[in-house]
Design a protein around this nucleic acid. Structure first.
Lengths: 205, 205
DNA sequence: CCTTGAACCGACCCACAAGTCGGTTTGTTT
DNA sequence: AAACAAACCGACTTGTGGGTCGGTTCAAGG
């Protein structure tokens, strides 16, 4: 089974470096050779493991992007606490580049969604599905929060989830270049302001 | 001067159709021939009027996109009324496809911003500049609203402007396919909710 | 050793799209 | 109507990048 291990290791290296470069330069603006040169691998090696560039990226979505979105944005929602601070905390984490100078995974979703929209049905469908799962989890957490008395009864939980997702995705277009601390701070502050307006009892801003 | 008129008319046709197709399929995913065939024009005609595809798109940005954004999002802010309803109205307009089944100009900004980011410094710079002008105008209107007693004194106007822009841009990623009436409605409702929390006096939701 | 097959190499093929250029049409001027 | 230039044509050049394929390396089993 040593063979299988080698295969998995090479595929893993390809996916990791691929996500890094696709994210930095865009999928359609990155050639396979860009990635292969970085890893000192050949076309032949690539097509031995993946059947096409698309197949390769789908692997990346399923193995890396899905995992990260779940870890950063969805799993934290599995809580019994007051939803609003939990959501804020998860978004703050997602917008920060990871501790060990990883990528800022929060940035990827809007980028790739826009890039694949109307160009690749398969991939954009999978990305939309990720957003969809996120939305469903947000809604159900918000509804639980309403029952638990943390959120005002008049609130439209679906609407709130939509609004949270929209503002989060949109931050990407504003945070393009430098990881602008100022903008992130403003965003989180205003999100708190908004959350105050849907909380069951008013809390100091 | 009949020549000049002919020239201007052809350039105008090219820009109009170009924006339509670039917006529908993306700039890098659209070949010049895609556009030229639609207009029954040739490569020669194109390069007689524009020096490159990039030059062509910059023309489109300056002549069409800037105009539309100003008309829909910036000029309406030049008012002495309560800023909050004015802003809501402008966003509602921008997200609607025009009356005479035009394009939904509100969708273009996020799409093109994302597409050109890190691929074309020149163009993405111009698009960011549009956003910047919008932000400046939003901030100054909000500040005036504060002086006029429409907006609470504790409010961070820059932060509010950032948040408005982020949520607006982000809606694009959610409204991708069909012009989903439901999502638009949710967005506007939540924006009103948010605005209630920064208004000087509470108004019914 | 020798065989076998997975992992890998890299020259090549092919489609596509930006940009070129010599030539043709069209309209205006005198 | 001759002359001139702007507008336009379309075959061609050139570069790029996804994908192919015959061959080589290497590790494991006999």
């Amino acid at each position: 089974m040593e063979m299988t291990l080698k295969r998995r290791e090479t595929m893993h290296r390809l996916c990791g470096k691929g996500l890094e470069i696709f994210h930095a330069k865009g999928y359609y603006n990155t050639s396979l050779d860009d990635i292969l040169n970085e890893l000192s691998l050949s076309k032949g090696a690539f097509y031995h493991h993946f059947k096409s560039k698309e197949d390769y990226f789908i692997n990346i979505v399923q193995n890396l992007i899905v995992q990260k979105v779940y870890a950063l944005l969805i799993e934290p929602l599995n809580t019994n606490e007051n939803p609003l601070p939990v959501i804020i905390e998860s978004l703050k984490n997602a917008l920060d580049p990871g501790k060990k100078n990883e990528m800022a995974y929060g940035f990827m979703l809007n980028d790739f969604l826009t890039e694949f929209n109307k160009r690749n049905e398969e991939i954009s469908g999978q990305l939309k599905e990720i957003i969809n799962v996120w939305e469903v989890n947000l809604v159900s957490l918000l509804k639980k929060g309403k029952l638990d008395g943390h959120i005002a009864r008049h609130v439209d939980c679906e609407g709130v989830a939509t609004y949270i997702i929209a503002s989060y995705l949109g931050m990407r277009s504003l945070l393009m270049d430098s990881s602008n601390k100022q903008l992130k701070y403003q965003y989180i502050q205003q999100l708190k302001q908004y959350f105050n307006s849907i909380a069951a009892h008013h809390v100091a801003a």
